[in-house]
Nucleic acid binder design. Structure first.
Lengths: 148, 148
DNA sequence: GACAAATAGATTGATATCAATATTAGTAAA
DNA sequence: TTTACTAATATTGATATCAATCTATTTGTC
């Protein structure tokens, strides 16, 4: 006798149509592709843009708070910094006050790339925001923050 | 003379607080971690769960529509199938009607894993949905679909 | 001060993601 | 039927992501 467990197709449709995780992943991939494409002339991805923008501070940033801000694992941040330091856009210096810590800073060329990216971000973001059904981006941001 | 381009800190704050791409990526990572953790006893990730659930159809699925449904690149789907076929959860067969195409199916053990994942998904999803400020998940799903 | 516990990052290994490109097969036009 | 085009999928290379684990350093307690 065959004892294959069958999941009702209705369950599949339920997950497909309601799963917030799937909905968010889909939107994340679509938005990433859109911003990546727009930023491609600068050889910058959406994630690199967000990371570098988060480093644009009066004082150099430590890694922990940056990872928390971006909601990425600390090991992901370590990896993400490699292509940026290799291109000379970000510097990693030891923190004299705490020799475990590192201080992250944008270099002048990093700031130049980031400055060039800002108008691209503005245009792309305006296009994306215009797609929202009723233009209520604040509400969407609030919902997304609640999930983070 | 120093010609370093400085991006106003206000711009950084603006991007940090308004960028929908960043907001969605953050929520995507947080939700992925949450579902990955809940599904870990089954050695299943959120993405593998979504993929396998999308394969639970009356007829075997072709790759193109599955990639479109998940909003992933076709090459990503090819890669994502490898650990699933290796574990014997998914089979990839040639399509006799079109020898370019492949037909994707869940195996009995794949269905068993997926069936075990469904109650975990239900509990986790209910917890996530409860975090929404006003409980209006439909509105959030509509917004996310508009961005996909 | 010594020692335990906590903290900051780095490394490794596995999977995820996409652009660019290649391969194979179906399709349509000449 | 040959030729051009289109469609479905695979491969490669680079980066992204996280769990598990490791090292170095700081902090707190006695």
């Amino acid at each position: 006798m065959s004892n294959v467990i069958e999941i009702p197709f209705e369950t599949t449709l339920l997950v497909r149509d309601t799963c917030l995780c799937l909905h968010v992943q889909r939107a994340a991939r679509a938005l990433a592709r859109r911003f990546d494409e727009a930023l491609r002339p600068l050889e910058l991805t959406n994630g690199q843009f967000s990371l570098m923008m988060s480093l644009n501070r009066p004082e150099p940033a430590a890694m922990g708070p940056v990872a928390t801000l971006l909601a990425i694992d600390q090991t992901t941040l370590t990896a993400a910094l490699k292509p940026l330091t290799r291109r000379g856009w970000v510097t990693i210096l030891p923190n004299p006050r705490d020799r475990r810590a590192r201080l992250l800073s944008l270099t002048p060329s990093g700031k130049a790339v980031l400055a060039a990216a800002v108008p691209i971000w503005k245009v792309t973001h305006a296009e994306v925001e215009a797609r929202l059904p009723d233009g209520n981006a604040d509400r969407l941001r609030r919902d997304l923050l609640a999930l983070s």
